[in-house]
Amino acid sequence: MADRPLLAVEALDKYFPLRRSLVAGMMGHPRRRVQAAKEVSFAIGKGESFGLVGESGCGKTTLGRLVLGLLPPDGGVIRFDGQDITKVEPTARRALRRQMQMVFQDPYSSLNPRIRIGSAIGEPIRLHGIVPPDEVAGEVARLLERVGLPASAASRYPSELSGGQRQRVGIARALSVRPKLLVADEAVSGLDVSVRAQVLNLLADLRRDLGLTLMFISHDLGVIEYLCETVGVMYLGTMVEYGPTSAVFARPAHPYTRALLASIPRADPSAVGQETPLAGEPPSPVDPPSGCPFRTRCPSARPLCETPPPRVMLPGGHWAVCHFATEVVRNGR
C-alpha cells in the first residue's frame, strides 16, 4: 500500500516514576510519576516532514526517543512501515532500528571524541555490510561530500571541527545505514544563525533528494514553519494540536498554539507584540491539571475546561484538543 504512513503512533503513554522515599513507600503512599506522554497519536507519511514543537519539559524529546525505541512505552502502539515495533523480538528490532536514525542536539557530545570522523561513519557501513568492504572508504567520502564536507575530513577528530561541521558529520553518520526515517531532536538549536540556515537547507535537500521522512523536534516555530509540512504541538505530554503547518500557523485552533505563535519575537520592529504574553509557567508534569492541561494558563479558560477536552476535527486534517477549538479559529488573527 502506497498510502500507508511510514510511522503511525497510537495512544502512546509514557510515565517516569519518581523516586519515593522509604517511609512514603511503607505508609502506602502511591508512587508519583511524571507524565511524559499521554495518549499521543499522530502519523507521518512516507517522505513527509513532520515538526514537533513545544516548550522544555513538554515531552517532545521523550516522544522522539519512544519512536526510535530508545525508551520503552508504557502503553500504545508504534507502527513503523506497518510493524508494531513495541512487539517485535530483539533481533528484528535491531534491523528495524537501523531504518530510523537520529540527529542529536549537541554536536559536541554526539560524536565520540576518540574516534576519527572516517571511522565514525565507516563503522556502521562495514558492520552492516552496506557496501563491499573495499568500497567503504569511497562510501564515507561520498557521504561526507553529500553533507557538504570535504572527503579529507575523514581523517580528523571531532575536536578539530566546528559545531556546524560536527552536526554535518552527525547527519552523515545517520545516513550511513540508509535509514527511512530521520529524527532530528533540536538539531539546529546549538548553532549560530548563519550556520543554522546551512544545516536547515541541507536537511531540506536531503529529504528531497533521498526521499527521507523527517521528524523534526524543535522549540523554534520559525524553523518548523520553514522545514515542515505538518506540525504537532505538545503541551505537558499531550499533543494539543496537529495539522498542516500552513493551517496551524495561519489558523491556530488551540489557545496554546496561538500564545506560542504570539510569543515569537518577530524580526520586524513594526510588529512589536500587541498581545500580552502568556502569563505564568507550565505546571509540573507530576500532577498535571485535571481536564484540559492548559487551563491553568489559558486566557479563555471556562468551567467546562475542567472536563477532558475532545479532539475537534477541522478541515484539511487539522485537529485540536480543546472544547472551544472552532471558536478559537473563528476569533483568530
Partner: peptide, 12 residues
C-alpha cells in the same frame, strides 16, 4: 538566514 514567517518555503 533566519526563517521569517512570510518567507516560509522560500529557501534560506
Amino acid at each position: 538566514s533566519i526563517p521569517r514567517g512570510t518567507r516560509a518555503h522560500h529557501p534560506l
